[in-house]
């Protein structure tokens, strides 16, 4: 029997604008989007189309000007920043194009950061990070500083950091943008493996080929979702 889809993310009539100079610039226009638990979604589109803003909105790093955003059926727009931070910590993992690792911390310490912020003891942190590092094949790099790691290894540390809290959602903003083709492919395969284990994967990319690997592909132009192709449609 086919498993019933459960809506995890629901965006309704989301608008967002920034003031650049003296002119307001609307970057999201009436966005409606529902993402189910376990979905693998790519967001594509030209620069300035609102892809990253949509990703930040889903990750609760940004607030919509109006509209509703429900995460696991709970509104995230009416709660305060502290509650949103805690929700983000417990449910969302971020992977950035330029890794955002703290240079003075080792790979292990960087990956431990979300656990540390959650108040988890050092012993448990170490065990969890070792476990994830082993899965990602970077256990021997745990004591290295970011400057001692290659691009692929840096992104693996960043993925490990996103995974240690066992989030429901992984948000990846151009995760292969700073990697060579081989490392990029390895990283994508790693993310897809995590998705197959049940994590909802949402990836922003410029790369059409990479975007096409997702089960569901969104295209954005000028702050609007202009195309939403699901895997079954693609198959047909």
């Amino acid at each position: 029997m086919k498993k019933a889809k459960v809506a995890l993310i629901e965006l309704q009539n989301i608008n967002k604008s920034y003031v650049i100079g003296e002119q307001p610039l609307q970057v999201l226009k009436q966005v409606n989007l529902t993402i189910n638990k376990g979905d693998y979604l790519s967001i594509m589109g030209p620069s300035g189309s609102g892809k990253s803003t949509l990703l930040n909105m889903i990750g609760m790093l940004d607030r919509p000007d109006n509209g509703e955003y429900k995460l696991a059926n709970k509104s995230t727009v009416t709660i305060n920043e502290e509650a949103r931070a805690l929700l983000r910590r417990d449910h969302v993992g971020f992977i950035f194009q330029n890794f955002h690792l703290i240079p003075r911390l080792t790979a292990q310490e960087n990956a431990e950061l979300p656990l540390m912020l959650a108040g988890i003891s050092a012993k448990i942190r170490r065990a969890r990070v070792n476990n994830v590092f082993a899965r990602l094949g970077i256990l021997d790099r745990a004591a290295h500083l970011p400057k001692q790691l290659s691009g692929g290894q840096l992104q693996r540390v960043a993925i490990a950091r996103a995974m240690v809290m066992e989030p429901d959602i992984l948000l990846a903003d151009e995760p292969t943008g700073n990697l060579d083709q081989r490392s990029g492919l390895e990283v994508i395969e790693l993310l897809e493996e995590l998705n197959q284990q049940g994590i909802t994967l949402i990836m922003v990319t410029h790369d059409q080929q990479l975007g096409n690997r997702a089960n569901r592909q969104l295209t954005m132009v000028d702050g609007k979702i202009t195309q939403d192709i699901s895997a079954n449609v693609i198959a047909r």
Binding site: G59, F94, L113
Partner: peptide
């Protein structure tokens, strides 16, 4: 700044 942004993205509250 980027470190602060990262900490917040990882779930650090303003007070933290």
């Amino acid at each position: 700044k980027q470190e602060i942004g990262l900490l917040k993205a990882l779930g650090a509250t303003s007070n933290e």
